[in-house]
Design a protein around this nucleic acid. Structure first.
Lengths: 228, 228
DNA sequence: TAGTAAAATTAGGCAACCCTAAATACGGCA
DNA sequence: TGCCGTATTTAGGGTTGCCTAATTTTACTA
């Protein structure tokens, strides 16, 4: 008996849900200013919108206390996330998009595609579980694969790792990562690790690369064993 | 030195341009009420919007006199039309959409895709000149193939024809057309033609089909010669 | 516990679009 | 030429979402 009204959400609402979901997911509380910053809006705008979203039952809101998605809101967020990631996967796989240029395109399309189209794209790709950044794609029921995730700087010297996930949408970072030969699936060995958040040196095939700590933290890997 | 401002048009504006272009193309003057009818809006809404479009230099407007697209407006309309038709072609060709179900999907996507994506889809399809309905796809420069176009009822009995273009977006009509074995490229022979806008009887392969006059007029064909 | 800076909300506005109801212009016919 | 119906525009409103400026709340520190 859930109110399954033809819940067409506006582009704006979808963006708010995505942002709140993402912020919460990172462990931060979804405060007004955090949301505003994420969406590039002024805090008063967020304050107002958040009230409307609460009225629609998409989130719980107590003035001055921040915001939390309801089940309905979370469902909405996961739907958009699924759309976004399938679109990214499709564009890279089938239309020759590069890793670092898909994001914006997906950002626009995710608000316009029908559920039918998303499922056709997913089928065409064999219902992948991860997108080109290595992010898990929510399934239609809202569940999703949990990616193993050791940040690259946490891997010990001498260990071998596989890059699984690149937690960045910044085109420049993505281009750099691609340029050194890294993408989800790439196997590497940690050659050196500077202490105090210093850079990590890794070997990919025959070449060594130095990865700064900030960027390295965004590279989620699985430790695959001791080097030879 | 044309004002090439980052002319992002809103969905609404794009729809107005498309409608005005289509109306004009049919030989009718683009009057306020015609546009309103086409877009399912009230005449006052159109009246207001048309003024804004004129301010943006997309059309010329004289109160009580109707509307005409400027070169800039026409360019906009053709861009959308190109997007629409390439999207339709892509969805049918690559994602298994049926002929009669693509229209709405394209209607939503055409406002969200980037020029880059359109060109990638077009390339993937080999830069087709016609969409699945047989409508010519405007080229990036705005030119387009002129379809030969004899309405089916105008073909004389005994003549053979090839269906080129189906000028309908009505899902039911399209389903019917597909169900009798007609689609762009289908070869048929006219077996009978009732006078006074009566139905046309055609033979496709071994079977005969009767096509009402109204529907037949939407079927644009090329006469390919005398039957055997 | 008072004082204050930061965070959040309220107040007041604006632009894009859409609508209904009321006025006005146009065009054709008596 | 004058009248009348239709087409069109003007008037007046509503919603969504965004913004700046002003106010209020909170939370931290002295």
């Amino acid at each position: 008996m859930t109110a399954l009204t033809a819940d067409e959400l506006t582009t704006s609402v979808e963006d708010y849900l995505k942002a709140i979901y993402a912020i919460t997911r990172q462990g931060h509380p979804a405060t007004t200013s955090e949301i505003a910053h994420w969406l590039n809006l002024s805090p008063p705008s967020v304050s107002g919108m958040v009230k409307r979203l609460a009225e629609q039952g998409l989130l719980e809101y107590q003035p001055y206390k921040g915001v939390e998605l309801t089940a309905k809101g979370r469902r909405g967020a996961l739907t958009i996330l699924r759309r976004h990631r399938i679109i990214e996967a499709y564009l890279v796989e089938r239309l020759g998009y590069s890793w670092d240029s898909v994001h914006q395109e997906a950002e626009r399309l995710e608000h316009a595609v029908s559920e039918v189209l998303i499922e056709r794209m997913a089928d065409a790709l064999g219902n992948p579980e991860f997108d080109p950044h290595g992010d898990p794609i929510p399934r239609p029921d809202g569940s999703m694969a949990e990616a193993t995730s050791t940040p690259m700087p946490d891997i010990e010297v001498g260990q071998e790792g596989v890059l699984h996930q690149v937690r960045s949408n910044d085109a420049e970072q993505l281009r750099f990562i691609a340029s050194v030969g890294l993408k989800p699936g790439t196997v590497f060995t940690v050659v050196a690790q500077q202490p105090f958040h210093g850079p990590t040196t890794i070997r990919i095939g025959d070449t060594e690369q130095v990865i700064g700590h900030e960027l390295g933290s965004l590279l989620r890997c699985e430790v695959s064993g001791e080097q030879g």
